[in-house]
Amino acid sequence: MKNLLINSIILLTLASFLTNCSDSSVDSHSDHADAVGLRIVSSGVTIVSYIRDSAVDGVIEAQAGESSGHMDVEFYDDENDSWFIPEEDHFTLLIEIGDTTIADYWQHEGEEGGFEFHILGKKAGNTQAVFTIIHDDHPDFVSKEIPLIVSDGSSI
């Protein structure tokens, strides 16, 4: 019985050391997109932007039955105080339109998931778009709702 006791203590001690060497990895803080704001640029002009708690400044506009011009999406990095476009190797853009009977988006062939898009106006009305940076298979950034207005072509 004494031998059993001694052996058990040795085993427990060994197990304690092994515990410290366990291979459970938390994989701390891989390179996520650290964004706290968004802007949409069309023909070199910023048409929508916000940073942190600021209100969304601007709207995305389109005409019913027509495709908008090319738009780029950039994100604000507050640590570096700069705008950036995530590298497309690991990051893709997801666009969700609130009411797709009013508008939808499209991207050029071969650019799906890239940080540029066009809006296709379907009918006059107001809806909103949410822009998400997908990092591999999870969201790193989810934007505020960006107003999207589709006008009747005849009224413009």
């Binding site: 304690s16 515990t19 410290n20 366990s22 459970s24 990895s25 938390v26 994989d27 591999d136 298979d137 999870h138």
Partner: peptide, 23 residues
């Protein structure tokens, strides 16, 4: 006493949202 605690959290997509280790 020594306690080695580890847990992982997975979204339904199978992606690991978070992991915590506490010794």
């Amino acid at each position: 006493d020594l306690t080695d605690y580890f847990h992982e959290e997975f979204a339904s997509s199978g992606f690991r949202d978070a992991a915590f280790s506490l010794i």
